[in-house]
Nucleic acid binder design. Sequence first.
DNA 1: AGCCAGGACAAGT
DNA 2: ACTTGTCATGGC
Length: 279
Amino acid sequence: MDITVSGKNLTVSNIGRFDLGFTLDCGQCFRFELKNGIWQGVVGDKLLKVAEQDGKLTFFDCTQEEFQNRWRKYFDLDRDYESIIRILSQDETLKAASDFAGGIHILQQDIWEVICSFIISQNNNIPRIKGIIERLCRGFGNKLDENNYTFPSAEVMANMTVEDFAPLRAGFRVKYMMDAAKKIANGEIDIAALCEMPLDEARNELKKIYGVGDKVANCILLFGFSRMDALPVDVWIKRALTEFYGSVNLPQFALPYAGIAQQYIFHYARIYRKELFEK
DNA sequence: AGCCAGGACAAGT
DNA sequence: ACTTGTCATGGC
């Protein structure tokens, strides 16, 4: 990884297999948008502006220190995806999927934001998920500038009333968010402790939140806790796996990286096997 | 104009 | 253990 600073911007090259657009637009995060070739979104308490060109990443308005402390981790740039792809490419399906979507990295997002976002995601579509999250942040997050607000903390959300939630238009998910905020804020579910638990145990803890089932729990584990062996199974993946493997199971060799394999297959199938998703 | 969305839950077999 | 209706709301 090579880093060069020019003016207020910072450029990173030699980062191995990485695709910024795929990574930010693959359904694992909901707060980025592409404007004039620049991806822009709030991460933590910062507005991030980043672009990719010729295999290099340019971070706008970014110091060396900020890149090292935040974005290097956020984009998971220190994980050896080449090796993972090598392991996954042991069969035809996963090789094709990896060839196409192997540039996707699993972001290291804020865990509370992931919990709340994937609760909102259930039985919902991406544009509306983004709208609800946008209204949540604008209404209850901290203002960075006219158009950008932080994601409200679990503590803040634990003090919100049903009337506070009403303008978000989140429907039946409100009671789920309220329970999640309460259990995280009061420590009933201890995020630090979950990091140390075996996968099944951590999943069962997360499912104590009203409205969190297997699929959402696995999304939280994969996208929030960087548990690459967590496998979120939705209707699309179910169809794709059944088509490719005859059942809703990945081959043995892929299990340690089931979550990554799932992301690759999802995007591969969505583009190249569209007929699987048409009824 | 409906249909259905990267689900979860509860109540029925 | 599987199947089904229900839940709010609004993109498309």
